[in-house]
Design a protein around this nucleic acid. Structure first.
Length: 569
RNA sequence: GAUUCCGUAGCUCAGUUGGCAGAGCAAGCGACUUUUAAUCGCUAGGUCCUGGGUUCGAGCCCCAGCGGAAUCACCA
């Protein structure tokens, strides 16, 4: 365990204590007798494995081989190098070599095979005496390098024999195949690009402990190709979202992550402090109130893809910092945002399915898709997505209308809700979450439309039905991926809602950090055009597109408690 | 924050009723020019997460703590 190794280092660096019986116990003095603590650490750290590698490192140095190489030109990715293999050329070459051997001609045969220069991490190392096979890996894939004693200088062959798993090498030679038909680089040059000092995970089972995989993502990425694929897919998804939004005329903007008032969502914020200004600040829980100020300023369509921070629990679909797309369109409404969201999610699904064409259970757009597996589900992203009203969904789940408030309250008591002190619509929503949300088909993206105004304080109500807000939420794969609203732009109504929120919402602890964003009200008084607003959880979207069950599998460095130093003060 | 489960070699994992700490891979030395988790011989490698307790004796039982996972709670 890393904790043990770290602790070993700690012991070695710890200055002698007054009670220590041995004088001058310092790491710099190798002659001293180790005390009990350092004797233990010498046993528990990985020094034997690391020392073997260090020994090679200094051996290379003394032979004039630099173990931490330099810039390399003209590299080809391993997948690309593999693609350059030509079986016919190889066959012709084999024949020519055989013919030359048969005629015992001393003339060398011309090699028509493509030459490549590749680099990769050593993932396998098979030494057969005068022939060494290396499995190299880069972010594009794996490729074998074959080093024959007859084809390289003695020192290069010695290097190939003595390579460790995890070392990074540069090889150059014709792309060909072995007798067993494995495509490979027949290296006639091989150089060390970087010596690895770290004992790698087991080559067959790899790194499976989820804690380990997140903490040492750098290992996870090259040991588990799935992980590299997932994070590559995440990156491509985010750039596709950018392109989509830009194509539709949205301007990407950046608004403060540190805010004097954490507004835009009812979530607990993280606090921080600016020293020079002696200012208490909050990490943002949402960019909403700043993006709307930009609509006031005259930007017609804005979006931001960035981090929100919420000081809440952690589970499979929640990380304290998460990435969201938030977008606002002047003169739009929730319907505008619905069309935009459906187009965007559909396009992302089409592109992901295309990237994963041929994979089990994946159907691309031209194969009656896109359909992408997510756990046990095969999620069908074909347009149009499903739509259902909040009230209809409630009735489907509960078996009666949410307007029958006595029955709603009775049901709430049945499922253990203390309904007496809650307003009607909050009781409705408790029953909705318990009985109705599970009725949404998880294999179909579903817009749930027309939510109660009471639980949507920043949303404009329907003109003819003030109790219903012009809002929808999209659910995919059993997760809420995001909401959209027809934004409230009446400053007086907005002020009222804020004040009601401060008065009624949340507990005492929440109220201590809530305060009213008067500048935002001022902005609305200047005048914000009617607008549609959207928020989409990018991490959850990536989970769906890459079939990962946990948000920690799609965030490169998810929040974890610091590794244990238990037992060390 | 609650409950349950997990923590043994660098990695992946066994460990029986409480009775000498195990395997595979990785590592070191040696053999091998067509391997594919190469193979074969030899060698070495342990704070059984930490701290207490019970016991003649604890990896195993009990208590507390640390870390993780799952479920729940929180979560516009």
């Amino acid at each position: 365990m890393s904790g043990q190794r770290d602790r070993g280092g700690y012991h070695r660096q710890r200055p002698p204590t007054p009670s220590s019986s041995a004088p001058n116990m310092s790491a710099a003095d190798p002659s001293n007798v180790p005390d009990a603590a350092s004797a233990r650490s010498a046993v528990t750290d990985t020094s034997e494995l690391v020392e073997a590698r260090r020994a090679k490192l200094s051996a290379w140095r003394s032979q004039g081989i630099e173990p931490y190489g330099k810039r390399v030109e003209g590299l080809v990715g391993l997948a690309e190098a593999r693609a350059r293999f030509d079986a016919e050329v190889q066959a012709a070459y084999d024949e020519a070599v055989a013919a030359a051997k048969a005629s015992s001609s001393s003339e060398s045969v011309d090699d028509p095979r493509d030459r490549v220069r590749v680099a990769g991490r050593v993932m396998q190392h098979r030494d057969l005496g005068k022939l060494v096979f290396l499995s190299l890996r880069d972010h594009t894939g794996d490729l074998q390098a074959t080093i024959s004693k007859a084809l390289v200088p003695a020192d290069a062959f010695e290097l190939a024999k003595r390579l460790d798993y995890g070392d990074i090498v540069v090889c150059e030679g014709p792309i060909g195949a072995t007798r067993r038909g494995e495509t490979c680089v027949w290296a006639d040059r091989i150089e060390l690009a970087c010596k690895s000092l770290f004992p790698p995970p087991e080559k067959w089972h790899g790194l499976v402990d989820p804690e380990h995989r997140s903490r040492r993502r750098y290992l996870d990425l090259h040991v588990n190709p799935d992980s590299m694929r997932t994070f590559t897919a995440r990156s491509r998804t985010i750039s596709r979202i950018r392109r989509f939004m830009e194509d539709r005329g949205f301007l990407e903007v950046e608004t403060p992550m540190m805010q004097p008032i954490a507004g835009g969502a009812a979530a607990r914020p993280f606090t921080t402090h600016h020293n020079a200004l002696d200012l208490e600040l909050f990490m943002r829980v949402a960019p909403e109130l700043y993006l709307k100020r930009l609509l006031v300023g005259g930007m017609p369509k804005v979006f931001e893809i960035n981090r929100n921070f919420r000081n809440e629990g952690v589970d499979r679909s929640h990380n304290p910092e998460f990435t969201a797309l938030e977008a606002y369109e002047a003169f739009g409404d929730s319907g505008t945002m619905m069309e935009l969201t459906e187009s965007l999610v559909h396009r992302l699904a089409v592109a992901s399915a295309e990237d994963r064409r041929g994979e089990d259970r994946v159907r691309t757009g031209d194969e009656d898709g896109p359909i992408l597996p997510f756990g046990d589900l095969d999620i069908d992203y074909r347009r149009p997505f499903d739509r259902i009203t909040y009230e209809d969904l409630f009735e489907r789940g509960a078996g009666f209308s949410c307007r029958e408030i006595d029955r709603v309250r009775a049901r709430a008591r049945e499922i253990g809700i203390d309904e007496a002190k809650l307003d009607d619509w909050f009781v409705v929503n408790e029953v909705f979450e318990h009985d109705a949300e599970p009725c949404i088909d998880p294999a179909r993206p579903t817009f749930v439309v027309d939510w109660p105004s009471a639980i949507s304080p920043l949303t404009r109500a329907h003109a003819d039905r003030p109790e219903i807000a012009d809002r929808w939420d999209i659910f995919i794969g059993g997760m809420e991926v995001g909401p959209a609203y027809t934004e409230l732009n009446d400053p007086d109504v907005q002020l009222e809602r804020f004040e009601a929120q401060l008065r009624d919402g949340g507990d005492d602890e929440e109220r201590t950090f809530r305060s009213l964003d008067r500048d935002f009200i001022d902005a609305l008084r200047v005048g914000m055009p009617p607008a549609g607003g959207l928020g989409l959880g990018i991490d959850r979207l990536v989970m769906l597109l890459t079939d990962r069950a946990s948000i920690r599998d799609v965030i490169l460095f998810p929040l974890l408690r610091p590794a244990s130093e238990a037992g060390v003060e």
